[in-house]
Structures are given as structure tokens and as C-alpha cells.
């Protein structure tokens, strides 16, 4: 476990985190191209909770979705082709 491999490891990992952090920073800074907001596809049918677009309370949102799908199933008791 010589010293050089520790050094290369630390520099490598540090360089890559820096590369990623700079990427995030520059990405946040560059403005959206003119007249092209994000497409209407919000996150309603994407289940990934860790992508930076997901609203913070994505998990609660999924649970409420299931709850009200249950509710309208019950309230629709009378409806024929629920």
C-alpha cells in the first residue's frame, strides 16, 4: 500500500468530484434556451425520487395518488363500469 497509490486515488476522486461539482454549478448557471421551457411532462408518471427535478415530497405524492385512487374506487361503488 505505497504512498503513491493513495495519492493517485485521492487526487483522482477529488478531481472527479470537482468535475461533477463544476458541472452542477455551470449547469445551474446556463439559462434555459429561449422560449423552450421544460416540456409539460412533469414528474407525475416517473417514479424516480432522486432525480434533481423531483419535488422534495415525491414519496408523499405517490402515497396520496394511491389513496385517492382507492377513494374514488370506493366512492364509485354505485358506478357500473368503474
Amino acid at each position: 500500500m505505497n504512498f503513491t497509490s493513495i495519492l493517485t486515488m485521492t487526487l483522482l476522486v477529488f478531481g472527479l468530484i470537482f468535475f461533477y461539482a463544476i458541472g452542477i454549478y455551470l449547469n445551474k448557471k446556463t439559462p434555459l434556451p429561449s422560449g423552450c421551457d421544460l416540456p409539460s411532462l412533469k414528474c407525475e408518471h416517473c417514479t424516480s425520487t432522486s432525480c434533481s427535478y423531483s419535488e422534495p415530497n415525491r414519496v408523499e405524492q405517490i402515497k396520496t395518488e394511491i389513496k385517492n385512487s382507492l377513494k374514488n374506487k370506493n366512492s364509485g361503488e354505485g358506478a357500473i363500469n368503474e
Binding site: 476522486v13 472527479l16 468535475f19 458541472g23 452542477i24 455551470l26 449547469n27 446556463t30 434556451p33
Partner: peptide, 20 residues
């Protein structure tokens, strides 16, 4: 560890590049 950092970095730069 190196690959996941590279991929995340590449995604950020690709997004920035396409935006520009």
C-alpha cells in the same frame, strides 16, 4: 466510485452543452 462520478459529471456537461 470513479465511474459513477464520471457519469454524473458527463451528464451535467452534456446537459449544459446541449442547452447552449
Amino acid at each position: 466510485i470513479v465511474f459513477i462520478l464520471v457519469i454524473s459529471g458527463v451528464v451535467q456537461f452534456v446537459e449544459m452543452f446541449i442547452k447552449k
